[in-house]
Design a protein around this nucleic acid. Structure first.
Lengths: 241, 241
DNA sequence: CGACGCATTGATCGCGCTCAAATGTCGTGG
DNA sequence: CCACGACATTTGAGCGCGATCAATGCGTCG
């Protein structure tokens, strides 16, 4: 995470994607596609690279492309005229961008660190989608899953306390279960605050509190270990996600 | 709204739906289906009736059915162990219920007032969906639209003030534009508060303030008129919805 | 070494919540 | 038609959580 891409075989933007050898295919919408279909998808896709902070797509602008993340992390967000921001989600390698769009994009997508994407022109992608039931079915599955997550976040934003929000966030980041591995935070405190509907100060104070209470261990700001997962789970009012 | 169903030709629950004459078809997922496909859909659907407060589907339970609302209003909500509630949305006639489900329902759906539904057994519906591209495409469209709305609501819940939330809510309810028609609120103050992430007191106070400021007119609690739509729109920090 | 950006910590403020009471609405039965 | 009770809504008083304002710490880069 916060992956510095090995700059050795620097991919030229615009080149056709190599789906067969793509490392994130299993996690992506292109998973399970018959080989022929995969090639048709590859034929309309190009590689796009973005640097840190670069805008991949902009809220309100015509939805010209769909994207699939092949490396790096992306922040999805909306903002109010006066600058207040809400991060609606973070996207990881394998995630699909553009589902939540009508004719115009519904959110802005900004690269956190360097990001590599598979770009699909909207019209050609939609045509192909209609021709490939497996693909459309997969997209529906992804959209349904996103909806479930969105509803869970409405509960968090509408009804949870600051402690509950931060605890929920940490648990969502944590690997599925059991593991007491290190969690790397690719995003800043500002991103986390805007994701949880809090301020950076409250996020920072809450993390400090969890550290004092020996629930987490955090030697550097963007790297932490869940020490007392059960305690956090209790605080988070963990639901059935 | 809060429609008292004319009890004259009381439909017997369980009977096969009459899609051809269905009044909400144009607004539903079954719109635009070729006639033959519509009949196949009708053949797996049954009519279900629910009384006020009745639970249509329950968060966390196995997702056995999908539903389409033919009349009445439905509250979609999630709750925390201690009873705090978040209404994730209100559903109207023509809306589809169950999209935001994995194997288990992601939210609870409760009837506000009497409700009539078209019920589709999950497995049979999914089989049919895979056979009818028009249907699956339509579902993907609905899911995408729901996602856009969900993200708008995250912005509201995470970043808007009480005044902005209530103003946004009123504008969302209002007919598309121009009209200064009467808005009927089928839901209670508690529902509105749980929808906006506020308390009933704050909702009530804010509505009273809008009335004092001559932005709305409200003679009875569940019926109001937008007097100053532009003012409300300014307050709502209206975005590109 | 200083400048910058990000995170942490402290002090204080205010929006929206909580607790409490009054008022309004509506259905029911005399 | 009115009296009554149950329940929803409105209004008031005071408080507390999280925001705001401000200062300090800390790591990175020129």
């Amino acid at each position: 995470m916060s992956v510095v891409i090995p700059v050795v075989p620097r991919i030229v933007a615009g080149r056709i994607a190599h789906c067969e050898s793509c490392g994130v295919r299993a996690r992506s919408v292109c998973a399970n596609l018959p080989e022929g279909d995969l090639m048709r998808l590859a034929s309309i896709s190009t590689v796009r690279q973005c640097g840190p902070g670069e805008v991949i797509m902009m809220e309100g602008e015509p939805a010209a492309s769909y994207h699939n993340i092949t490396s790096g992390f992306v922040r999805l967000h909306k903002s109010l005229p006066d600058g207040r921001e809400q991060v609606t989600g973070f996207a990881r390698p394998g995630d699909f961008l553009g589902l939540a769009s009508e004719d115009n994009y519904g959110v802005t997508a900004t690269a956190i660190g360097p990001v590599t994407l598979c770009r699909f022109p909207r019209d050609r992608f939609r045509t192909l989608m209609h021709a490939l039931p497996t693909l459309e079915d997969r997209l529906l599955g992804v959209a349904s899953h996103e909806l479930v997550i969105a509803q869970e976040r409405m509960l968090l934003l509408g009804r949870k306390t600051a402690r509950e929000r931060v605890a929920s966030f940490l648990l969502d980041l944590a690997p599925p279960c059991g593991e007491t591995g290190v969690i790397l935070l690719p995003m800043t405190r500002t991103d986390i605050a805007d994701y949880l509907g809090l301020t950076i100060e409250t996020v920072s104070r809450t993390l400090s509190a969890f550290r004092r209470e020996k629930r987490i261990d955090m030697k550097v700001p963007n790297q932490l270990v869940l020490v007392d997962r059960n305690g956090l789970s209790r605080i988070a009012q963990a639901s059935a996600l």
